[in-house]
Design a protein around this nucleic acid. Structure first.
Lengths: 203, 203
DNA sequence: TTTCCCTGAATGAACGTTCATTCACACTGG
DNA sequence: CCAGTGTGAATGAACGTTCATTCAGGGAAA
């Protein structure tokens, strides 16, 4: 008997679903959750419309799966951060890469869409909020590890800092998606603000 | 003959259109640009579907008019700021109110939707970008007035600062629209970052 | 054959838009 | 005062299209 504490087994359908999700992401980015039709999604995934319903029961389910997939990725990133030698330093490095790098890349580009959709759909809002509290919790876990405080103490002292950092990272990610100006300097200012905030935790 | 340099005359239809726009805003907020149907909009405005097309040629035109209306409001705010005794101090005060106050109020609540829609519609992206450059230009005008520099010089020195402040104000506005946590402390941190950036212009 | 994956046409609902029609009312000639 | 006439605002049903979803069946592997 195998001990698998994480996932039971990545079945064939699960792998296929993940591939479909990856293909579908760009279509949602181009047209939005409401704007992208099932035919657009099918074309993007390279499968027929009907076949879609073998893997996802509805269009809404696709969106939810997409968000949860991203949440899993974030969770995995934080797992790596927390098990690294110096979690706080690693976190700073990851944040720096996110803010300065081409943040319009894969996962964060969908966030604008998710935030907008959260206003209209209670289910999406719930998924988005779950992801956000998850990230905040991971921030605080890093802070707790860095300072030696308990999670409760870290929450009490640094939850504002964590929220602030999250807001700033999101703000930086939404930058320059309209590709008109070079936002490098602005990104640097944002990163400076983040570093300043993180300095309150560990100077 | 009357000298009207601003608007020629607010015709009856124009007044009516403005009223319709105000009514329609909440419907768009509730369901999104794509999610709100013409029947939703008509119900919100208290008129029939067909009558809508007397005032706006298409659904897209309603959205564009909504954005341009908000742009006019912003322009009016900046006109008041620039003609005040101390433009820089007034600007700081307005920003403080926007960041700390209930920014989910009328105009800024639509911005999330606009940013998302900008990805899918070139026309909306254009309108949004026009509004953004307009705001940045006004920021720089205030900075120029404060420092005594020319507009070109102010642009060269402070355009990054202006972009940063705009990003921060937008970030603060998108906060706490999911009404789960009290973001007062986070707002205060954002305001502190903005004040710090503005301090580079006028200490 | 049975089983499984897949297709693309079919379906009814809902969409944005248009249109024939109705309504309220001001103005006229008597 | 009243019929007659013209006007523009307003309606809601109808149009063609597109949507999400379903389904009868094709074709390969076992």
């Amino acid at each position: 008997m195998q001990m698998t504490l994480t996932a039971p087994a990545p079945s064939h359908a699960d792998i296929r679903s993940a591939g479909i999700l990856a293909s579908v992401r760009q279509a949602f980015l181009d047209k939005g959750f409401d704007g992208a039709s099932m035919q657009d999604l099918a074309r993007a995934a390279g499968i027929s419309v009907g076949n879609f319903y073998r893997y996802f029961p509805s269009k809404a389910a696709i969106i939810q799966a997409l968000i949860e997939h991203d949440a899993d990725m974030v969770q995995r990133d934080f797992a790596a951060i927390l098990t690294s030698d110096q979690p706080m330093a690693t976190l700073r490095q990851v944040i720096r890469a996110r803010v300065l790098g081409d943040a319009c890349a894969d996962d964060l580009a969908l966030w604008t869409e998710v935030e907008a959709a959260s206003r209209h759909s209670a289910e999406i809002a719930q998924a988005a909020q779950r992801m956000e509290t998850e990230v905040l919790g991971n921030f605080l876990a890093v802070f707790a590890a860095e300072t030696g405080l308990s999670l409760a103490q870290a929450h009490q002292r640094y939850s504002t800092t964590a929220s602030f950092v999250l807001v700033m990272v999101k703000a930086a990610s939404c930058l320059s998606c309209g590709a008109h100006i070079d936002h490098t300097a602005v990104r640097a200012m944002i990163l400076a603000s983040i570093d300043q905030a993180l300095g309150q935790v560990a100077p």
